[in-house]
Design a protein around this nucleic acid. Sequence first.
DNA 1: AATACAATAGAAAAATATTCTAAAAAGTAA
DNA 2: TTACTTTTTAGAATATTTTTCTATTGTATT
Lengths: 159, 159
Amino acid sequence: MIKLDRIDLKILDILQRDARSTIKEIAGKLNLSTTPIFERIKRLEKAGVIDRYVAILNPTLLGKKLTAFIHISIKDHTKESVEAFVERVVSFDEVIECHHVSGDSDFLLQVLLEDIEKYNQFVMEKLSVVPNISKLESRFSLSVRKKTNLVYIQTGPAK
Amino acid sequence: MIKLDRIDLKILDILQRDARSTIKEIAGKLNLSTTPIFERIKRLEKAGVIDRYVAILNPTLLGKKLTAFIHISIKDHTKESVEAFVERVVSFDEVIECHHVSGDSDFLLQVLLEDIEKYNQFVMEKLSVVPNISKLESRFSLSVRKKTNLVYIQTGPAK
DNA sequence: AATACAATAGAAAAATATTCTAAAAAGTAA
DNA sequence: TTACTTTTTAGAATATTTTTCTATTGTATT
């Protein structure tokens, strides 16, 4: 497990908010020269702490106006059946999250689609076709009040 | 509403998978020079289709090993009460998603924390202190099988 | 204090982003 | 079709940024 000091954490905090921050800008904020910032970033990338850099798009402007949460229970819980189920489900581009969860149901999916019609089509033609489903319950997001990728990092004082 | 042609969609597809792709690389893939790619990206940014660029961190390596989903029902549904509730909830750094949802409960939160103990602490000391909560039900993610920000884009042929 | 190790500053080189001008392409109206 | 307008693009020049390198500074250990 990689060791992270205060400077590393601040770099992470800056980059996860704006990946376009230049090394010079970060160096300015942290009162360092560009070299240590550059090398620390490379180190964080190699260690996997920084997984990747992505552009976040506005789904609405791309016609994806519906977010739904689908709770699914499965019949057969043998490892092979579960894996086969997961493999099918995560292969759908509409599915943006898939969690194996505790509680009444076994899986919780988050799906992103154009609208209710596409949702219906997705469930009917793609999802419910997947074997091993026993129960399927949907909720729709009426409004997204927060959605972030930020991993909260304490960047207070101390060392 | 901005018009997007096939080239725009391909640029978006590339950038949302790897925001570090250089303009030259993208230009190469799309058989264009750097100028049109550069200008199209700027246009997509201004239009808000590209919302922002972020670094995606590995939560586990930062000690955040628990993802939980919390279904919340509230007592008072007047607009003021609801807004006050939302404002409080989204202010918590542990809350990475907050949706107003259809179904039995009113809100669905996704929270990211260190572990069960921190979760308990969060619910006891922060969440349940928020006024207007009538019911609160939690599920835990036993394993994350998919988690992406990709907005699926058809980049086939046609125009 | 002397040694070893890691982190840093500063400058140089390489790569990239950005701007500019002019040519090509696509669409419009007669 | 032709003439005209508008949009898109290529290619070169410039500005920034990233990346590499060398030497210095700082820190910990003995």
